[in-house]
């Protein structure tokens, strides 16, 4: 199971606790997260399901490369951080 952590800045708007979920790609992991916490989805993804322009996701310390389809691989014990990109101020 991968562990997913969210920037604490999200807590100003809604609950976004760290969770453990299965999934072989970022897309599958986040789908699991949003199934349990639907309101969180629109904070991380845009209308098209892409990462928002100023949100960045790290898998085991590396920023994901597929921001459109979220196909970056996730390992059994990956640590995933969903952060705000400083490009957004």
């Amino acid at each position: 199971m991968a562990r997913v952590h969210f920037t604490p800045n999200l807590r100003r708007h809604l609950e976004a606790p760290s969770v453990e979920v299965p999934g072989a790609t970022v897309s599958r992991v986040l789908d699991q997260v949003f199934a349990a916490n639907p309101a969180l989805r629109s904070y991380v993804l845009d209308d098209q399901g892409r990462l928002r322009t100023h949100v960045v996701v790290y898998v085991d310390g590396g920023a994901v490369s597929d921001r459109i389809g979220l196909g970056d691989p996730v390992a059994e014990r990956s640590e995933i951080h969903v952060m705000q990109a400083l490009s957004g101020g």
Partner: peptide
Amino acid sequence: DLGHFGVK
């Protein structure tokens, strides 16, 4: 317009 986190 939450910037990083989109419109609400």
